[in-house]
Design a protein around this nucleic acid. Structure first.
Lengths: 344, 344
DNA sequence: ATGCACGATAAAAACGTTTAACTTTCTTGT
DNA sequence: ACAAGAAAGTTAAACGTTTTTATCGTGCAT
């Protein structure tokens, strides 16, 4: 038994395939009574739209490409794991639409650039979602030049306007720094993502500004940029804690590096709260299980991910990018008092 | 300027589109010289195969559906994060093929069942990859009944034969238990996944068998089943450590629950190595950053994931499932001596 | 010379849908 | 009563492939 097509319905109802097609997509050209007949027949024969026909005819793919930059296959680090939740969040946001998430895993920035060029020029998707945005991101420029719908997870600094979702890194660092300086800290380390990433820059600027406000000097030795793995957190604690004037607080850009920082504490015999404290940004609600639990800025990953999905849908509908820009402020969850220990 | 099609090449070369099509797919019906002309023209005009035409004509989708069971959107736990790496591994394995990974995020088992039925009956993909297999898995039966190509991450017990990749849980538990009993442990807790999952059953059976071999009694109070979140690890340590005869070793099924177990230790004032030890299975190389680092069975997630990709390709080629079954033995990484502390 | 098989290419149909252009019927205003 | 126009359907073409079938020379045996 063959799968029914609009032709089947046409025969079944005695109408032409054109009318059937129009009826099914609620064209005003067909009378409500006729539509009812078509709908009934469609249900009776178990009709389901065949996307391949639609795709060929209309050129639409009904695919949203999610570009996922993950380290090479031989790399097995706790990095980019929040992608799983991000993807499922996007996927759920598209659930009631005809769109599907099509995954493009790339190893690095260059590869993502190439993949995006291909998707755009060969129209392998109708929309693109990327992350890991840079201050001036050539991928964004590619998509903008082709007028291709996209949303970024992360802002860019020089490519506005475009649709984006991000955590409010500026505010987060500002609040975080104010809170720590208020509690007596004068040597605060910043464990930052790779320096070409837009949010790395935002965080660094906010950090420096906060230092200014607090009247504290900027010490480059307290700032590190790198891939946010546990190894990164660990190694920086190991080196920074050996400074003649070591930091009394570490601000980690994610949970992975915070975990690594703890590992560094353990190695050096440092005790959290006594010798120094760790604050982090947390997407996965995992910092509460650290020993001890730490203060975090918690943004449930489901929020940005469902926004990304919603935004790409609206962007593909033609909504202007200016209306699709959101900075989300994570929740401050204080699990330690984080005061500077005076007799350290 | 329009995107070139085989028609473009046909005009360019003076051949018919049929010949062009055949030439491009290396049909023996066309002379090598003719083929060369076609290839040359194709490159000159920058021809790229339009999949929509192919899909409509052949009915193939060139999509591999990856079913990803992740907890609902409102749940923001560290769970299933290894999926990110799994997906990218699969995606890379398909890189040189025309296939793409199409993501289907589902909330629970029932939903995955429905989604799979749909993919199979409407042929929305050419192959399926699932995980979270059960002892007798109705999804597998669905796909088998329709003779639909699939590979599972995880074994099933009653649905053989089918293509699968999994860690060798039986051996892992056997070795793990032998090692711990050898070191004096007589109260060993097992933090297991949900009891309907196939690997949960395998692990439990291996555990009970190992107890028998060691002449130790089976105590249900030392076995827990649940979703492998940090919360799960933590709560079980909290309750089990209060037993009159508490465990001196915990075997955790993943890193998330191991992290939670540590959190439980901290809460109860237990010290790893003194009061009890934790062993875990680790996909993401993260246990080395625990304080202290723990002994783990480490299986880089890239291995099973690239196998999954390779297997689904071969399965779609028609290779019989019996040839596509692999159990991978994780590497034992001893980071503690894990001996029972006699004066605990 | 005639017929035949074969090799190489061309013609045409088909996959399922959308949509521009056309036809028919009905309504309406004069 | 009739033209004009709207409403509701139909016809036919088109999207880019693959594949079955047809065509056309050419070489070969008879």
């Amino acid at each position: 038994m063959q799968r029914p097509t609009i032709k089947t319905i046409a025969q079944e109802t005695g109408l032409s395939i054109a009318t059937v097609s129009k009826a099914l997509k609620h064209s005003p050209q067909v009378r409500p009574e006729t539509r009812a007949i078509v709908i009934e027949a469609a249900e009776r024969v178990g009709y389901e739209l065949n996307m391949h026909g639609v795709q060929l005819r209309t050129g639409k793919t009904y695919q949203v490409a999610a570009i996922m930059t993950a380290p090479g296959p031989k790399q097995n680090e706790w990095e980019g794991v929040e992608y799983a939740q991000l993807l499922s969040g996007i996927s759920w946001a598209l659930e009631d639409s005809p769109y599907r998430v099509s995954l493009y895993a790339v190893r690095n920035f260059e590869e993502s650039q190439a993949v995006i060029k291909q998707i755009v020029s060969l129209k392998k998707a109708d929309g693109i979602i990327i992350s890991g945005t840079r201050a001036d991101d050539p991928r964004i420029r590619t998509m903008q030049a082709a007028d291709f719908p996209f949303v970024t997870y992360g802002t860019s600094i020089h490519n506005a306007p475009h649709a984006y979702v991000d955590a409010d890194n500026e505010q987060m660092i500002r609040v975080s720094m104010a809170r720590l300086t208020e509690r007596g800290h004068r040597r605060i380390a910043l464990l930052n993502p790779l320096s070409d990433l837009s949010y790395g820059i935002t965080r660094l600027e906010a950090y420096r500004h906060a230092l200014d406000v607090a009247g504290l000097p900027y010490d480059p030795a307290l700032v590190a940029h790198g891939r946010l793995t546990p190894a990164f957190g660990r190694e920086n604690v190991l080196t920074m804690s050996e400074l003649s004037n070591p930091p009394t607080a570490y601000i980690c850009a994610n949970e992975a590096s915070a975990l690594g920082a703890f590992s560094g504490f353990h190695e050096r015999g440092l005790v959290h709260g006594r010798d120094a404290v760790i604050n982090a940004t947390d997407d996965l609600n995992v910092s509460q299980y650290f020993a001890p639990p730490i203060t975090t800025y918690y943004l449930p990953i489901s929020e940005p991910s469902s926004l990304l999905g919603a935004y790409i849908l609206r962007r593909m509908e033609g909504e202007p990018p200016e209306a699709l820009q959101t900075l989300l402020m994570p929740n401050l969850i204080e699990r330690c008092d984080d005061r500077l220990n005076p007799n350290r």
